[in-house]
Design a protein around this nucleic acid. Structure first.
Lengths: 230, 230
DNA sequence: TAATCAAGAAGAAGTAGTACTTAATCGAAT
DNA sequence: ATTCGATTAAGTACTACTTCTTCTTGATTA
C-alpha cells in the first residue's frame, strides 16, 4: 500500500479537531479510526500518539481518545497553525498570529541590532532598498517577497531560535494581508521608510532605534487589523 | 509490560538529542533503539514518530532516523523546553525564554487591558496587593507564587491562546530567577510598584499604560540577565 | 583501461495484522 | 454505600510483508 498513510490520516483527523468538527470532549475509539480512514492499527495508533503529543487529545483506558479543550492545545505546532489557517476560522487564526508577531518583532529587531553580522546588516539594507524600488513600481508580488525575506532575516539574526521559528508565521501573516486585498495599491511610503530605518539601525548596531522603528511598523499592522474587525 | 514505556523512552531519547549527546546528523536505527531501551518495536516506532513531529529527527528509508539541526527543531514544544531546562544548557535555555517573555508580555498586558473582565481586573489588583505585602515581609516563596499567578492571569486575560500558552514559560523563568539566587533578599520596591501599576491600568482598561508599565518590568528582567552574562 | 550507466541485491523504514496485558469503568451483589 | 468481579478499550509485544533507497556489480562505451 502506498507510502505516507500516516501523514494523510494525521492531516484529516487533525484538521477535523482543529476546525471543531470534533468538538472538545468527543470520544474516538481507535478501531473506529481504523475503519473511518481505512488505515491499519499501526497507522491509527501512531496518529493518535502524535495528536496526543500536540495536546489535541488524551487517551484513557476503557474510554477512548478524548478531544481536549482548545486552550490546552499546543498552539505553536506548525501543523495546528496550518490546519487553522486552512480552516473556516482563518480570520481568527490570522488575528492571533498577527498579535504574536507584533509582540515579538520589535524585540527581535533589538537583538538583531546587537548580534547581526556585518554581512547580515548589508543584506538587510539591500533588501530595504529593493523594497523601496518595488513599492514605487507597484510590483506587489515582488515587494511581498522582499518583505518576507526582510523579516525572516531579522528574526534569524536575533540569534534566538524561538524568534527565528516565527519566520513562517510572519510570512503567513504578510502573505495573508496582501492575499486578502488588505494592502493598498502601493505600499504606504512611511511603512517602507520605516523598513529602511530598521535596516540602518540594525546595520549600525543601534538596538533602541531598531526596536522603536520596528514597533512603529507592527503598530501599523495592528491598526489595520483592528480597523478590519469593527 | 508496565505502563507508559512510551513516555520513558521518549524522555530518554528526546533528552539525549536535546542535550547534544546525539549531535545533528547522528543516525539511529530503530532496532538499535529497541535494544538500547529494551522496548518493543511498537514503542520504538511511536517514539520516533513523535520525535519526527517535533522536528527533532527525520526518517529516511534505507538509512535510519537522523537527528536534525537544532535550528529546525520545534522550540515551542513543552517537552523540548523541559529537556533543555533540565540539561546542561539550562542557562542558555533560560536566556532564550527570558527574551521571548520580555517580547510578549508587554503586548499581553495591552490586550488584557482591552479584554479582561472586571472580575479579572479585580483579581489582578488583589494579587498585586498581596505581592506588596509579601515583598515587605521578605517571604520570597509566597511572593514568587503570587508573581507567577499575576503573570499567568494577564497572559490568559489577553484572550490570545498563543500568549496564554507562554504562562508555563514565564513561570519557569520567574522560578529560575529566584532559584538561582538572582533575586535580592527583598524584591525591588520599584518592581513591585510597577506590578501595581500594571494591575491598575488593566483594571482601568488603559492599554497604553498597561503596556508601558509591563515593558518597564521586563526591561528590568532583561538587564538582570545581561549583567549576568558578562 | 577507465569511466559511466543500468539492473539487481540488500537493507531499513513503512504498513498490516494478531495475540496478550493492564487498568478503568460499570454493574451486581453484599 | 462498598466491594468485587466482569467487561472493555487502550497499551504492549511480536511477526509477516511491502516499499523505497542506496550500494554493488557488471556490462557497455569512449
Amino acid at each position: 500500500m502506498g507510502n505516507d498513510r500516516h501523514g494523510e490520516v494525521l492531516d484529516s483527523l487533525g484538521a477535523a479537531i482543529a476546525n471543531g468538527e470534533l468538538p472538545p470532549g468527543s470520544v474516538l475509539r481507535s478501531d473506529d479510526l481504523q475503519e473511518r480512514f481505512g488505515a491499519s492499527r499501526t497507522v491509527a495508533r501512531e496518529v493518535v500518539r502524535v495528536l496526543e503529543t500536540m495536546c489535541l487529545t488524551t487517551s484513557k483506558r476503557r474510554v477512548g481518545v478524548i478531544v481536549r479543550e482548545p486552550g490546552e492545545w499546543n498552539h505553536y505546532d506548525p501543523r495546528l497553525i496550518r490546519w487553522q489557517l486552512d480552516g473556516p476560522a482563518r480570520q481568527t487564526a490570522l488575528r492571533v498570529l498577527t498579535e504574536l508577531r507584533s509582540a515579538v518583532e520589535p524585540s527581535a529587531a533589538r537583538f538583531a541590532a546587537l548580534r547581526a553580522t556585518p554581512e547580515e546588516g548589508g543584506r538587510l539594507r539591500a533588501l530595504a532598498t529593493r523594497m523601496e524600488r518595488t513599492a514605487k513600481a507597484r510590483d506587489l508580488d515582488t515587494f511581498l517577497g522582499h518583505d518576507i525575506d526582510f523579516h525572516d532575516l531579522i528574526l534569524h539574526a536575533s540569534r534566538n531560535p524561538m524568534f527565528g521559528q516565527l519566520s513562517a508565521v510572519v510570512a503567513e501573516v504578510l502573505a495573508g494581508r496582501t492575499g486578502h486585498g488588505l494592502m493598498p495599491e502601493e505600499p504606504q511610503p512611511e511603512a517602507v521608510a520605516l523598513h529602511v530605518e530598521v535596516a540602518a539601525a540594525i546595520a549600525a548596531g543601534a538596538p533602541d532605534r531598531a526596536e522603536r522603528a520596528m514597533r512603529d511598523i507592527v503598530i501599523q499592522a495592528r491598526d489595520e487589523l483592528t480597523s478590519l474587525f469593527e
